[in-house]
């Protein structure tokens, strides 16, 4: 694909949607549905200010910390549980139970234990992100190819080498799938964690605008959330391309045959 075509494919639909919104909402007098022009003006005034440092960055930082902790816990536990049939049988009912609990209902409980600071918010994010990562890792580890496992045994590739070069890499396509699901859960929980007993943050600010009837500002906050989602998804795709280069390579070489 040429560069021009790529840019058109990438930006075509967003441009059309924004333009449609712009013209349909132009001159709107509806208080709750302001024109996009007013939202954009509010966007500039609201977010190109110290709010970016005071509200957006802390939110994103908490998301990053919570997400990374969830990745580490999910992958480590998932590899252990996936590799051990006995442990898997033991953990399965508990995992199903814990996974079924929506993290938002845990917020007050976590708050009782961890207070109302950053810790609670990070724990909320972790408690939601960890499940897709964990469960996908378990499945990925179970799917290790037996011939490859035999190869490791016969060449005495054991211990840490085996975990690193066989188990982790075999499971990586599924780990990445889980991590992608975890990321979208994380963005939702980033907002939700700031709805309770918070004094700053993106979610907090959006709710403040809503309660103060600053409707264009509220809409602009929603746009910020969407844009954060887009940027994170792009970063994720870049990371995925590096980690799973081999996997996509196999798939495209199979399509060629």
């Amino acid at each position: 694909m040429t560069l021009a075509r790529r840019i058109v494919t990438l930006l075509g639909l967003p441009v059309v949607l924004v333009a449609t919104w712009w013209f349909l909402s132009a001159g709107s007098t509806d208080f709750y549905r302001p024109s996009l022009q007013r939202i954009v003006t509010a966007f500039q005034q609201t977010w190109f200010s110290e709010r970016l440092v005071v509200d957006v960055l802390p939110s994103v930082a908490r998301l990053a910390v919570g997400y990374l902790i969830a990745l580490v816990i999910g992958i480590a536990l998932g590899m252990m549980i996936g590799a051990n049939r006995w442990l898997r049988a033991l953990c399965e009912p508990v995992l199903e139970f814990l996974r079924a609990i929506p993290p938002p209902v845990l917020v007050p409980i976590i708050m009782l234990v961890a207070g109302i600071g950053n810790t609670t918010k990070v724990i909320v994010i972790v408690s939601g992100c960890v499940w897709p990562v964990l469960l996908n890792t378990v499945e990925g580890v179970r799917g290790v190819d037996e011939v490859l496992a035999d190869t490791c045994r016969s060449y005495r590739i054991t211990g840490l080498n085996r975990w690193r070069h066989l188990v982790l890499r075999s499971a990586s396509p599924q780990i990445v799938t889980g991590a992608r699901q975890g990321l979208s859960v994380g963005i939702i929980l980033m907002v939700i964690s700031e709805l309770f007993a918070a004094s700053s943050g993106l979610g907090f600010t959006i709710v403040q605008f809503q309660r103060g009837f600053q409707i264009p500002e509220m809409w602009s906050g929603v746009l910020v959330l969407g844009l954060i989602g887009v940027v994170l998804a792009q970063l994720f795709t870049i990371a995925e391309r590096r980690i799973l280069a081999w996997y996509h390579g196999i798939r495209s070489s199979q399509r060629e045959w």
């Binding site: 011939v147 035999d150 016969s154 060449y155 590739i157 080498n161 066989l166 890499r169 990586s172 996997y247």
Partner: peptide, 27 residues
Amino acid sequence: AVVFQEYGRSLFPWLRVAQNVELPLKA
């Protein structure tokens, strides 16, 4: 050393050729 029938499944697809040969020596 063992050479398996299923060559496609006994090489590490995420390692390059030289890395595949090197891994047992590294271990």
